[in-house]
Write a protein that binds this DNA or RNA. Structure first.
Lengths: 298, 298
DNA sequence: CGGAAATCATCGCTTTTCACGATGTCGGTC
DNA sequence: GACCGACATCGTGAAAAGCGATGATTTCCG
């Protein structure tokens, strides 16, 4: 008896609107006797009558106490309905999703994923963050694009292998593959030493290439401009080149490396052992799809 | 399964706050298995898991769906508690009351009633109205002071008999009772012809007094000023004289009438067959008490 | 004035649900 | 690997929901 029941309030409100227990029962799909008992239960919980029953064909009327219950009860029922709608919206895929992306890793994949997600779920609230802590971690994010290992208890899926290619000024190297050894002591511009970059430079070294890094920036356009200006060459993943539309640039030339470096692997991570929102699940599916399309178009 | 149950939401919120089914159960006074089943029922109604159960000593965590339910569920529970509080306040006597009063009928009784009611129930919302339709009716009022018959289905209690007295300029009549016959053709000021006034004038006529009414107004001060100015005398109920403090006025004299007129009867009315609010019930009690005190002090 | 109609309350009755205690299962810990 | 701690599940008795039938009132109408 400590608390009201929504069912009883629904019956009460229906009676107040219909003016009759029987009609309210019909509206709610109950019998008259059930509604009568529901009101009796409600009156027991609130500790007083909520209706005056004049008898005969005259309509039931709410008492002053009933008016108090009616006002608040309607609010309560409205909130209950709102909860149901919110759940339905959520299950339909609306809602909020926090996605983390680091550096330029996903300048090609992510926009497409976002657009398709928004097209499917116009009401959804997509939030992106590009924070880059020293140790990449998933934190409060729902999804995290990253090209390396992520701390914490995460699951992940590999989106694609992103091979490293050499970018140089047009004519700096003859067309076709370039041997790693030719990059030894060569001036080079490069990304800062996070993400997969240290691994890549170690792989260069293992191949006998110890380039002179003369400039580091995370901004791809700046790197490529430096290459065009003749400051040095660059070893960048294919995705970054595609994002900057390097293939169409006559002032630059792209070369495979021999032997090739181990490709950067781009993963999509999410917290392990936790239920994903429908939005997040769908985003993973879309990301895998988009990544497949991009790999296939190489 | 069409609707959530507040009980389930309470269990859900408690678990979310405690991080454990067992602790939540202890807090709510249930067993662990009961809250487990309550959550299961909730998950059935919303159609998905609301908790991730990592197993072992790690706390239960709400899923994205659970976050939606948690946010709305807290609102719902808050409204439910608000309903309970509103009911308690109502039963304690707070709330709203609409009181109707007509003309100067209650310029003596009503202020005292209001003050005592407000003292007892500081939170209450007392509304007075002095509308005067052609046919007095209770309408949406909770209480109605009136000195005559009221249309509609009402109950009433007589507050007091209010005898009519003659008011004249000091010295116009010798001290003591005045015979009705002496008022025949006398110039007189009087109230408009509503409330008990027509009955009173008929009673005058039956007693042989056919005064010349030279001025009518509902404003008592105006009437008494006219009496002082010598325009005529007035026959007014005792309450009105008391309200205007006529006894202490040396320029006026008050006389009983012989034979006396039937006293005006002042009633307090309320809608019949309807449950009264605690506030209204108490107001009736107070009004009867106050009227008794005033009659006794005559 | 008496019967018909409408309305809500009440009484058994069946089905469902609630809450409990005991037991099972799973993951982490020593 | 045995032992916790924590949640799920199962079986049981009590409580409640809901239904249909019946009863008590009141109004309406002849």
């Amino acid at each position: 008896m400590r608390d009201v029941e929504l069912r009883h309030l629904a019956a009460f409100v229906a009676i107040a609107e219909e003016g009759s227990f029987g009609r309210a029962a019909a509206r709610l799909g109950y019998t008259q006797s059930t509604v009568s008992q529901q009101v009796a239960a409600l009156e027991k919980t609130v500790g007083g009558s909520v209706f005056d029953r004049p008898g005969g064909p005259r309509p039931a009327r709410v008492t002053p106490l009933g008016a108090v219950v009616l006002e608040r009860g309607r609010e309560l029922l409205a909130r209950s309905a709102a909860l149901g709608e919110a759940v339905e919206r959520f299950k339909a895929g609306d809602g909020r999703i926090d996605i983390g992306t680091f550096q330029s890793v996903s300048s090609v994949i992510l926009p497409t994923v976002i657009r398709r997600l928004r097209d499917e779920h116009p009401g959804c609230d997509i939030r992106l963050s590009e924070e880059e802590p020293d140790t990449p971690q998933i934190g409060q994010l729902d999804l995290l694009f990253y090209d390396g290992q992520v701390d914490g208890d995460v699951e992940r899926v590999k989106l694609l292998d992103d091979p490293y290619l050499l970018v140089a000024g047009a004519g700096d190297f003859p067309d076709g593959p370039v041997r790693l050894a030719r990059l030894d002591h060569a001036p080079m511009v490069a990304w800062p030493l996070d993400c997969d970059q240290p691994e890549m430079e170690e792989a260069l070294a293992r191949g006998g290439a110890h380039p002179r890094i003369v400039f580091r920036t995370a901004v791809n356009d700046a790197l490529l401009s430096m290459v065009r200006a003749g400051l040095g060459c660059a070893v960048l993943p294919w995705l970054a080149l595609r994002g900057a539309n390097v293939e169409a640039d006559p002032t630059l030339s792209v070369h495979e490396l021999r032997p090739s470096l181990p490709a950067r692997e781009i993963y999509l991570h999410w917290p392990a052992g936790r239920t994903l929102s429908p939005l997040a699940s769908r985003a993973i599916e879309i990301a895998v799809e988009v990544a497949g399309d991009i790999s296939g178009s190489a």
